[in-house]
Amino acid sequence: MSENPNGLAGAAETALRVRAHYEQLEQRLLGRTWTLPELAVGFTNDAAYVGRLVLAAEHTWDIDGDVGAELRHKLAECLWWAFVLADKLGVDLPEAYEATMDRIDTGLRTTLHDAPGDGQ
């Protein structure tokens, strides 16, 4: 996997550039761009399909095509949707992700440290 030197901030920039292209197409085809609720439905639709792909990966749901390739594609699209929605809602997703993961990590480390060990 190639590493993006800009991390999530670079990924966000790419996501918004791609979204701008979609907005141009929507303007041509619909005479308007998708609303925030339409964007949210697009995200939830792709996220739900990830669930089906996980079932397919576990051999409990059949799909046509390459399950691994589809999973990579849909997971990437879900990340794209998250960047798009965050932008529309005024959320700095790279900053929010870092702050949230730091908070969760600290809480889990504290819990693990304070929890009784395996008979130790």
Score class of each variant (00 low, 15 high):
residue 3 E to L: 14
residue 4 N to S: 15
residue 6 N to W: 15
residue 7 G to D: 10
residue 7 G to C: 08
residue 8 L to I: 13
residue 9 A to K: 14
residue 11 A to P: 11
residue 11 A to T: 14
residue 12 A to N: 12
residue 15 A to S: 14
residue 16 L to G: 05
residue 21 H to C: 05
residue 21 H to Y: 09
residue 26 E to T: 04
residue 27 Q to P: 01
residue 27 Q to K: 09
residue 28 R to C: 01
residue 29 L to Y: 09
residue 31 G to W: 05
residue 36 L to Q: 00
residue 37 P to K: 05
residue 41 V to D: 02
residue 41 V to M: 03
residue 41 V to Q: 04
residue 43 F to R: 06
residue 46 D to Q: 09
residue 48 A to L: 04
residue 49 Y to V: 10
residue 50 V to H: 07
residue 51 G to L: 06
residue 54 V to W: 06
residue 55 L to Q: 07
residue 56 A to H: 03
residue 56 A to V: 07
residue 56 A to P: 03
residue 58 E to T: 13
residue 61 W to R: 11
residue 64 D to V: 06
residue 65 G to T: 04
residue 71 L to W: 10
residue 71 L to V: 10
residue 74 K to C: 03
residue 76 A to C: 08
residue 77 E to Y: 12
residue 77 E to A: 12
residue 80 W to A: 02
residue 80 W to Q: 04
residue 84 V to S: 03
residue 87 D to T: 00
residue 88 K to F: 00
residue 89 L to E: 00
residue 89 L to C: 01
residue 90 G to C: 00
residue 91 V to L: 05
residue 91 V to T: 08
residue 94 P to E: 03
residue 95 E to P: 01
residue 96 A to D: 02
residue 96 A to Q: 02
residue 96 A to Y: 02
residue 96 A to H: 11
residue 96 A to R: 03
residue 97 Y to G: 05
residue 98 E to L: 14
residue 99 A to S: 06
residue 99 A to G: 08
residue 102 D to R: 15
residue 104 I to W: 09
residue 104 I to C: 07
residue 105 D to M: 08
residue 105 D to V: 01
residue 106 T to C: 00
residue 109 R to Y: 10
residue 110 T to R: 11
residue 113 H to A: 14
residue 114 D to A: 10
residue 114 D to N: 11
residue 115 A to P: 03
residue 117 G to D: 10
residue 120 Q to D: 15
